[in-house]
Write a protein that binds this DNA or RNA. Structure first.
Length: 608
DNA sequence: CCTGCCGGGCG
DNA sequence: CGCCCGGCAGG
């Protein structure tokens, strides 16, 4: 049930997968014994050919180097990396949160009232599977309250955003930034899209309202996309025997229904390479392959991330670029910042030299390995590492690799990872379980939250960890949900405390979960120690009835949790079962419709 | 498909 | 604010 719940929240149909490096996990801080979020920075597998039968070079002995996200409570040494074994990590494909006992003081995230809420563990009763969590009220003037949740409902890191929003944002970015007009919805409308900037004036077409901050957030939050892309390519590189069709579909975009395909093709100024039938010939040489791969990856702009494919002596390996070279536009600064922390490693056999710039590494490859007469592109012989203090040893495995299951291929590489953490969790878990034959249990936590910088070593990113603080200047969005005199749709205010404009979409994920297990929590203690002073909380015209179950029932019968100070979340109106004006009067008597119905708003005449 | 309606643009 | 409409979710 839980799985379906999570899937429901993401409503995703496309699948996704990712690389281990960069994955968000949680691990115990050696200092205070609490879990903190971080990213897998490196994977170290001791040389052990017998265990190394898999293409991603993971064995039960693999050590995962984790860089904790900076946060005010536990401040890891900036450059410090902490090593863990897979069993010590909590995250997709690793350990499950339900396997651990949470200590008091542990910071957790729960879905409360359909909204991600941060809390502090007060008590964890393992036998009863009850976690008492103290939640800071949205209003700083109200006392914290406590919730009791099941452990499986608790997450150790922030969750992801609403898939719908993410979708919109992604489409937006694609259309505007990558100069690609198509998206999956419009692609079915038989209309030719005009780039956004040409339609914004004099058109009723809705334009996006995302701020620069939000777009940056978007990019930041999508760092797993490059992992998606990499895993796709990795599966290709690791499985020379994999079905040719799958391999082509990933690179050449020949898979039907692949949204990446449609968007990239519709926005591509040049015809797809697959118009050349020879391309798919199995006699394609290595050079041809890498050229084609490179070209097409560039076109695909796999979710705006650059992926480099390294081909070396007939063997393909992949690595990620930490920068967004695929896009120009507004992100120059961001990219520059990321680029500063990069390191370039020569991937020539037995070399491994590292360089500060790609120019240097190219020069190195050219002079030391390739020689002036070789026409090979230096690009294929180096990889850019993310950071400064440790080399990431990811692509050194040269043992022959079994093909990945076909279900792990790339038909869905377009899907951003935050859309379907559940599926990814399973996939990654399956990969790991299959390859390692170790027990990595899935868990319900989403480990792809935007909680840290894309470059974990960067010290220039400010984190939003002050979950109990309120910034009076942070933007608030007031949304009037319905003009009709409904009592359950009072204007709501996004809590300004934790979330700046740059990440507020995280909050707008609620309505998917309203009818689900998120409302199983019970309010065990409600204490208003001090009356609100400033700013005044949103007016609630009707106080929700708190039943013994702790559920607040609104008029439409939807269970809602509303802690003190918490305002009504954005929620899509349940579909009314009553007759609506359209139904009653018919299209012919549109004049008789209520205004709301005329406006395609919620019917005010036949309310539910 | 159809329907209800949210989110948002335009004047 | 009135009006309109794209698009989504759900049936």
């Amino acid at each position: 049930m839980k799985k379906y719940f999570l899937n429901k929240m993401s409503t995703g149909k496309r699948l996704a997968k990712r690389s281990i490096i960069g994955m968000r996990v949680c691990a115990l801080s050696p200092d205070d014994g609490l879990f903190y979020p971080g990213r897998i920075h490196a994977v170290k597998t001791p040389d052990s050919p017998r265990d190394n039968q898999n293409c991603i070079n993971l064995t039960p002995n693999t050590r995962y180097s984790v860089r904790f996200d900076p946060n005010p409570v536990f401040i890891p040494t900036r450059r410090a990396l902490y090593e863990f074994s897979s069993s010590e990590l909590i995250g997709d494909g690793f350990g499950n949160i339900t396997d651990v006992k949470l200590k008091p003081g542990q910071k957790v995230y729960i879905t409360n009232n359909g909204r991600e809420t941060c809390g502090i563990i007060v008590e964890h009763d393992v036998t009863m599977d009850e976690v008492t969590i103290q939640i800071q009220s949205a209003s700083p003037n109200e006392a914290p309250y406590e919730l009791v949740k099941k452990l499986e409902e608790v997450r150790l890191s922030e969750s992801r955003r609403s898939p719908r929003l993410a979708d919109q944002e992604r489409d937006t970015d694609f259309a505007r930034l990558a100069d690609m007009a198509g998206d999956r919805r419009r692609s079915s409308s038989h209309s030719i899209d005009v780039p956004m900037q040409f339609t914004q004036n004099g058109s009723r077409k809705r334009r996006t309202s995302y701020t620069q901050d939000e777009r940056e957030y978007l990019l930041d939050g999508d760092d797993m996309d490059e992992c998606n892309a990499a895993l796709v390519l990795m599966s290709l590189s690791c499985s020379p025997n994999s079905p040719r069709q799958a391999w082509e579909s990933a690179i050449f975009g020949t898979s039907p229904g692949d949204s990446i395909q449609s968007s990239s093709y519709s926005g591509s100024s040049s015809p797809p390479l697959s118009d050349d039938g020879n391309v798919s010939s199995s006699s394609m040489s290595s050079n041809e392959q890498k050229y084609i791969i490179k070209q097409n990856l560039h076109k695909l702009k796999i979710n705006q991330h650059n992926v480099k494919v390294h081909i070396r002596r007939g063997q393909r390996t992949t690595s990620l670029s930490a920068s967004d070279e695929g896009i120009v536009m507004d992100y120059g600064e961001e990219m520059a910042r990321k680029r500063r922390t990069r390191l370039f490693k020569c991937t020539w056999k037995n070399c491994g030299s590292t360089f500060a710039t790609d120019q240097q590494v190219k020069s190195h490859v050219r002079t030391v390995h390739l020689g002036p007469k070789n026409n090979d592109d230096e690009d294929f012989y180096f990889t850019d590492l993310e950071d400064e203090d440790e080399a990431i040893e990811t692509d050194t495995n040269t043992t022959s690799s079994p093909p990945l299951p076909p279900t792990l291929s790339h038909s869905d590489m377009a899907r951003p990872p935050h859309e379907d953490p559940e599926y990814q969790r399973k996939i990654v878990g399956n990969i790991r379980q299959g390859l390692l034959m170790s027990s990595g249990s899935a868990n319900g936590q989403s480990s792809f939250a935007k909680s840290g910088p894309i470059t974990s070593g960067s010290n220039t990113v400010i984190h939003n960890y002050a979950w109990s603080q309120t910034s009076p200047t942070s933007p608030q969005k007031h949304v009037k949900l319905s003009p009709r005199p409904s009592t359950s749709y009072a204007p709501y205010t996004l809590p300004s405390s934790t979330y700046s404009s740059s990440n507020y979409p995280v909050l707008v994920q609620q309505y998917h979960s309203l009818s689900s297990s998120s409302s199983q929590a019970s309010i065990t203690k409600l204490s208003h120690s001090s009356p609100p002073q400033l700013p005044p909380p949103p007016q609630q015209q009707h106080t929700p009835v708190i039943q013994t179950t702790g559920k607040c029932i609104n008029q439409s019968g939807i269970a809602k949790m509303r802690p003190p100070g918490m305002s009504t979340p954005l929620q899509r109106r349940t579909r009314g079962e009553n007759k609506k004006c359209r139904k009653v009067y018919g299209m012919d008597n549109r004049d008789s419709w209520c205004t709301q119905c005329k406006w395609k708003k919620a019917c005010s005449r036949f309310g539910d």
